[in-house]
């Protein structure tokens, strides 16, 4: 049984761009898998937590009830929660719908939009579909978040330095160029 610290990641209401940025650490990914084991993550396609994790990396905010459940599950299983990217920290592009009432959003998407083809004339409401929230919430408005790494996406070096600092139990001191909101 491996004694390496465990890392879990997920993408909630995000575009996977932050995960792309994580992969953008290039050959350091080889060092990373020497340092940690990945638990639940889209990178290895593990669907459920099998162990307690040191770090949970969250991309995206909460747009539906499933996002909230996943985020709460991460909080339960991880010592440190990192909100990665602008969607996790402020809602990001999905939060643009926060300025429009939910009913109008759904009508535009499924009924009235200029390119909509929907002969049934119904908004999808199957019980299998997670309920959509009234607005998109940043992660820290749903659970306690321990570390924020903003950016769209955050630079690979930002993610790398944050992980290395966490794994070595050192304070995180990011240089000026590595905290950017765009």
């Amino acid at each position: 049984m491996s004694t390496k610290p465990k890392v879990a990641t997920t993408s909630l209401a995000g575009c996977f761009g932050c995960h792309m940025s994580l992969l953008d650490i290039d050959d350091r990914i080889l060092k990373l898998i020497e340092l940690v084991d990945f638990n639940k993550s889209p990178i290895n396609d593990i669907k459920k937590f099998t162990d307690r994790c040191l770090v949970g990396i969250i991309e995206g905010g909460c747009s539906n009830e499933e996002n909230v459940h996943v985020l709460q599950d991460f909080r339960k299983h991880c010592d440190v929660i990192i909100a990665l990217g602008d969607c996790a920290t402020m809602g990001g592009l999905p939060a643009m719908r926060n300025h429009v009432p939910l009913k109008e959003c759904l009508e535009e998407a499924y009924l009235k939009g200029p390119t909509v083809y929907n002969p049934g004339g119904k908004v999808p409401g199957d019980a299998e579909l997670p309920l959509i929230l009234d607005k998109v919430y940043p992660c820290q408005e749903v659970v306690k978040v321990d570390l924020f790494l903003p950016g769209c996406p955050p630079p690979a070096d930002t993610i790398w330095q944050a992980l290395v600092a966490l794994l070595n139990n050192k304070p995180l001191e990011l240089p000026y160029e590595l905290i950017k909101y765009d």
Binding site: A83, D86, T89, M90, G91, G92, L93, A95, M96, P138, Q140, E141, V145, L147, F148, L149, P150, C152, Y176, I179, K180, Y181, D182
Partner: peptide, 30 residues
Amino acid sequence: HYCMFCEKSGNCELQALAYRLGIQAPRYPY
């Protein structure tokens, strides 16, 4: 303040002040 699609990003004084003050995310609800 959606920096990711704002034309002013990088030249914005509000954003630059937040960088200088080391703000990684606001502690208040949006």
